[in-house]
């Protein structure tokens, strides 16, 4: 198996986020992706399909490029910052969307229902935060060489770090992992993973700086929308950086939100309570119910197995004759 398809901690699988959190983040991500589609259509026009498609493939394949850190662990690229620096924020949103969605749909790297949250973390937060940090640093350096290098490294590290905070908060909001454990754990691991990302991104940008400096001209204007992206990215970074230590210090706050949500779902319960409250038709013991469900399950599976075997034999006989 190639390293590119090894599951990364950042990709949340299905089952770990509550339905409400998943669905809300699906809507949020969809809004950003639609905006990105419109913006990219304006700037790239008919070139966008080949450029976005091939570059998404490059970022995807680029995740294979790893380097040994120590004792069998290795650093490798996620690519949100690199894509943002080379393509600009909106195009990077689309590229990361294509990559993250394919990882979920084809390689089960991240869940399908959780894809909305994963897109939000990697394609929206990762990209916007990279953009804000890169613009800020290159702006402060007034186009000097060190600004490009420092900007790309800090953008890469910050994007990974802030995206991991977002993932930790989502897990806490879903009641899967208490905030006072999830936030420090995710932040700690990704502060290290972010270093690998920063180093590779720096190397890549240094290469591009030598070979095609024109590609790194992100800072020099991209219209009005770039300012709102800059501000938005900064706000996302700030909000998450402030919110998560707060949540971590007061896990009860988030628990309270989760409780409220449970309360909401409990409030829907009466819909089903119309039916008299026994556990299974005629069976009051849950253990017995589980055993019966197991027996039914085995019968279904056995039936299908026999059916397939029968069909296969039939097909073989057909081919033989």
């Amino acid at each position: 198996m190639l390293p590119v398809f090894a599951p990364v901690q950042m990709h949340i699988p299905d089952g770990f986020l509550s339905t409400l959190v998943s669905l809300v983040l699906w809507v949020v991500s969809a809004v950003f992706i639609f905006t990105a589609l419109r913006q990219v259509n304006k700037t790239l026009g008919e070139r966008q399909v080949p450029v976005m498609g091939v570059l998404a493939a490059a970022i995807f394949a680029g995740q294979m490029l790893n380097f040994a850190v120590t004792g069998g662990t290795s650093g490798h690229l996620l690519g949100a910052a690199l894509a943002t620096i080379v393509l600009g924020p909106w195009a990077a949103v689309l590229v990361m969307t294509a990559v993250v969605a394919t990882q979920a749909l084809i390689f089960q790297d991240g869940g399908v229902l959780a894809l909305g949250a994963n897109l939000f973390n990697m394609a929206v937060v990762g990209v916007f935060v990279s953009y804000a940090v890169y613009r800020l640093v290159t702006g402060l350096a007034r186009g000097a060489r060190w600004g490009v290098f420092l900007g790309s490294a800090t953008a890469a590290w910050t994007s990974i770090f802030i995206a991991s905070l977002a993932a930790a908060l989502q897990l806490a909001l879903s009641g899967t992992s208490p905030a006072n454990i999830a936030v420090p754990a995710m932040a700690g691991i990704h502060a290290l993973i972010g270093l690998g990302e920063a180093l590779i991104t720096l190397g890549a940008v240094a290469f591009l700086y030598a070979a095609r400096r024109d590609l790194l001209n992100l800072a020099s204007g991209e219209g009005k929308s770039s300012k709102s992206v800059l501000i938005g990215g900064g706000l996302i970074a700030l909000a998450l950086a402030v919110l998560s230590p707060l949540a971590s210090a007061n896990p009860d706050g988030l628990e309270w939100v989760a409780e409220q949500k449970n309360f909401l779902s409990a409030a829907r319960e009466p819909l089903y309570a119309i039916i008299p409250d026994y556990v299974f038709p005629g069976i009051s013991n849950e253990a017995v119910a589980t055993i019966i469900a197991g027996v039914i399950g085995v019968v279904i599976v056995l039936g299908v197995t026999l059916g397939v075997a029968h069909l296969r034999r039939g097909r073989k006989a057909e081919r033989g004759s």
Partner: peptide, 11 residues
């Protein structure tokens, strides 16, 4: 080195 490879792949 890995970064240079990523940059060249992108280019």
């Amino acid at each position: 080195v890995a970064g240079g490879m990523a940059g060249s792949l992108l280019l």
